[in-house]
Write a protein that binds this DNA or RNA. Sequence first.
DNA 1: CTGCATGCAAAGACTTTGCAAGAGA
DNA 2: TCTCTTGCAAAGTCTTTGCATGCAG
Lengths: 178, 178
Amino acid sequence: MRGEKYTGDVGETQNKCGKQRFLDFLGGKRLRLTAQRRAIVETVFSTTQHFTADQLLAWARKRDRSVSRATVYRTLPLLTESGLVREMDFGKGQTYYDPNYADHPNHSHLICEDCEKIVEFESEKIARLETEIGQKLGFSVTRQRLQITGSCDELKKRGTCKNLDPRSANSAALHEPR
Amino acid sequence: MRGEKYTGDVGETQNKCGKQRFLDFLGGKRLRLTAQRRAIVETVFSTTQHFTADQLLAWARKRDRSVSRATVYRTLPLLTESGLVREMDFGKGQTYYDPNYADHPNHSHLICEDCEKIVEFESEKIARLETEIGQKLGFSVTRQRLQITGSCDELKKRGTCKNLDPRSANSAALHEPR
DNA sequence: CTGCATGCAAAGACTTTGCAAGAGA
DNA sequence: TCTCTTGCAAAGTCTTTGCATGCAG
């Protein structure tokens, strides 16, 4: 595979720096590091899964029962503002958040319309084309958002889809992070 | 400009077929052509602008006062199901709809973060790369959704942005369609 | 200490839906 | 006529916010 440098889970090790970078972000804005914020941030950067506000609340509460829904909703904008997490719209009516922008600031999503699984990937070639198109239209590209939707070839041929395999990461099936 | 075949307004003439194609879609599903649906559909396909449910309601009511909010919300899914209109998320909290998929089924959006204007474009090269990436990951690409965000070069150099010019079409500033 | 942050509950924004009346085909 | 559609208003879902209390720096 050439051009696509990254697919799937990046593991927890790399993501650790996401947490630290967010703490630095907070410090830079003279914002306080409260127990609740710590619980939320640790939750977010200990997973590579996409999540909703509701899921984040449930997960963060396991670390600190005192985390409230309001604080989750107040922290989410900080996370997106830091650039380490980004809002995603899967047309499901609620906003999903992707914590993988800390390690992969320019990745894209391929969504399987059969099993709803999501594969993350990066493409240098597409990034270059985007910059080029932006230039031609008179803009300096600052970021991009690409979702490719497709159907699973394996499912079509074999009647089952390997993405249903729980080992595949970054799926839309949102389990609990540890 | 090569690769990008289309930018900006496509005019009303081409869009007329959007309406007819939707009426055919209704007929194919044995759905009735009511006065309210007609007003909504004529509104949608007489503009190239992106709109919200609320705006569509206001506009459609000018053609037929009897159009209700409920009918707008019930018709929107039919429009998206037909493939002639697509939901768009600009992170504004509400869903926007783009009626330009009838004429340009695979176009993308460039969004200016300075003036919020939106330029539509098509790129054959990117489309090919997407298909290629999909294949490598084991999927048959059925559709894509690409948003490029950038800052306006002109604004940076001259202190003003030509996209503020009302002549530029498909802008985020949603005026009334005729 | 001082002011930012929090939890709670109420409010808000947008969208969906049950139901009786209305109207295409 | 026979259903599919509609308008209305109530309900639903997700998110934001006012306020008194709490706590980090």
